[in-house]
Simulated assay, not measured.
Amino acid sequence: MTVSEPRTSGAAKGTGVAVLITNSQGEYLLHLRDDIEGICWPGYWALVGGSPEPGEPLADAIARELKEETGLTIALEEFATVAQRGAEDLGKGPIAVYQGHWDGDAHALPLTEGVMLHWFPVTTIPRLRVPPWCREVIGLHRAR
């Protein structure tokens, strides 16, 4: 897996989008994905995200996915691009990761996909079933 440094100009490149959301306590908002066949990372805790529609700018795609899946509309900025590797990632392209900040009750969000949203301190994340690309992005975020 390769994680690029954040971009400061130009559009992020990716075939998928995800958002790294933190709160004032330094916790990360993770999404428990449905454990059903046919989706990426079934039964894993992951960042909220999805795929852009044909011709849709990545920044618009992540804002749409975030709104559709959680009801949230928050300010987002480019963070990094992740090149996926591993069995679950075969045939998948890079993910453009954006970051945002929100202080709120994750369980009160109107979740439309997956099982639940939950805030996790970084110390708990190693004990969760999390895709390697998410772990890498969180590690990069923590290093800054």
Rank of each mutant, 00 (worst) to 15 (best):
I62G: 02
A18P: 06
A80R: 14
E53F: 14
H107A: 15
Y98T: 10
D35W: 06
E56L: 00
A75I: 09
R64W: 01
L32A: 02
R7I: 13
G114R: 06
L90F: 02
L90I: 15
T8G: 12
P131Y: 02
T112F: 03
V48W: 00
W133K: 14
F120S: 06
P126E: 09
E65S: 04
Q99H: 11
L109A: 05
L128M: 02
A108C: 04
G14S: 08
H141E: 10
E37F: 12
R135F: 10
W102E: 00
L72E: 01
I39Y: 05
H101L: 12
A11Y: 04
L30N: 03
I21K: 00
V3T: 12
D105C: 07
Y44P: 05
T73P: 02
L128Q: 10
L72N: 03
Y44W: 13
A80N: 13
V122W: 07
P110R: 05
D89L: 08
P42G: 05
Y28F: 15
H31T: 09
V3L: 15
T22R: 13
G14W: 09
H141R: 14
V19D: 03
Y44G: 04
D103I: 06
T73W: 00
V130A: 08
E68I: 06
R144Y: 13
Y44H: 14
R7A: 15
A59K: 11
